Simulated scan of single mutants.
Amino acid sequence: MPRSGAAARRRLQQAALELYQERGFDRTTAAEIAARAGVNERTFFRHFPDKREVLFDGEADLGAELRQTVVEAPAGLEPFETLLHAFRKTAQALENNHPWSEPRWKVIAATPALRERELAKHAWLTDAAAEALRQRGVAAGLAGLAARTGWAAYQHAVQSWIDDPTQRLDACLRQAFDDLRALSTATLPGQPRTESWAASPKLVARRKDHR
């Protein structure tokens, strides 16, 4: 995309975020976003199919990066460690762009139409992570479970970071996965202790059978 096109795209994104914060998503039109960005409405629709997609730019690139990072993670990592490795790398852009990430997250959380779009995005990224785990030899069922659970931990970490911006997102991610591991091995009082899924011989054997 020419430099001028990239600049217009960024202005449209910033203008949309400002207007969504000021007026709300439902009360903002594509024409108003274009006017705030200093372009015409036709330019808006040349870059984005509708006003929701302004806040979801780069989804395909993120999915490709996540998939590649999972596949290329160091050998020998368990599924959760593999996902944490990938999330820490892909989340760097989110952390580096905090002035955009925080208000965007809050606008989405407050807007049903955007939350619906966000859920669809999450499902797609979860599928991408699961497919990448399968490429590493993880059994299909375990790959799907790990991807869904790991993505929930990722979302929890991002929310913690948004709620307390004095924290590093990387630290929130590591804490979320530490908590996830603790939950997976926790037992109720009086209950026999069970093996974690990562260390269970049966599950390890199932993973090896699918390599």
Rank of each mutant, 00 (worst) to 15 (best):
S4N: 08
G5S: 13
A7K: 11
R11Q: 15
Q13D: 03
A15W: 06
E18D: 14
L19A: 06
F25Y: 14
D26K: 13
R27H: 13
T28Q: 08
T29W: 02
E32H: 08
I33D: 00
A35R: 14
R36T: 10
A37V: 07
N40K: 09
N40P: 05
R42K: 15
T43Q: 10
T43W: 04
F44E: 00
R46S: 11
R46I: 07
R52D: 01
E53K: 11
V54R: 01
L55S: 06
L55K: 03
L55Y: 06
G58P: 09
G58M: 08
G63F: 06
Q68C: 04
T69Q: 08
V70R: 00
V71R: 15
V71I: 14
A73G: 01
E78D: 15
P79Q: 02
P79C: 05
F80A: 02
L83F: 00
F87P: 00
F87N: 01
R88H: 01
T90R: 07
A91H: 10
A91S: 15
A93E: 11
L94V: 15
L94H: 08
L94K: 10
N96W: 09
N97K: 11
E102V: 15
R104V: 12
R104Y: 08
V107F: 07
I108Y: 02
A109V: 06
T111P: 05
T111W: 10
T111I: 12
P112W: 05
E116W: 11
E118H: 13
E118C: 05
A120V: 11
K121T: 13
A123P: 06
T126H: 00
D127T: 13
D127V: 06
A128Q: 13
A132Y: 03
L133T: 03
R134P: 03
R136F: 07
G137K: 03
G141R: 12
L142K: 04
L142Y: 04
L145Q: 07
A146L: 03
R148L: 11
T149Q: 03
W151L: 13
A152C: 04
I162W: 06
D163A: 14
D164G: 04
T166F: 05
D170N: 09
C172E: 03
L173R: 00
R174V: 06
Q175A: 12
F177T: 00
D178I: 02
D178V: 07
L180P: 00
R181D: 08
A182Y: 01
A182S: 12
A182T: 07
T185A: 10
A186N: 03
A186G: 05
G190D: 11
G190I: 12
Q191G: 01
Q191W: 09
S196E: 05
K202W: 11
K202A: 14
V204M: 10
V204K: 15
R207D: 09
R207M: 14
K208A: 14
K208H: 12
K208N: 11
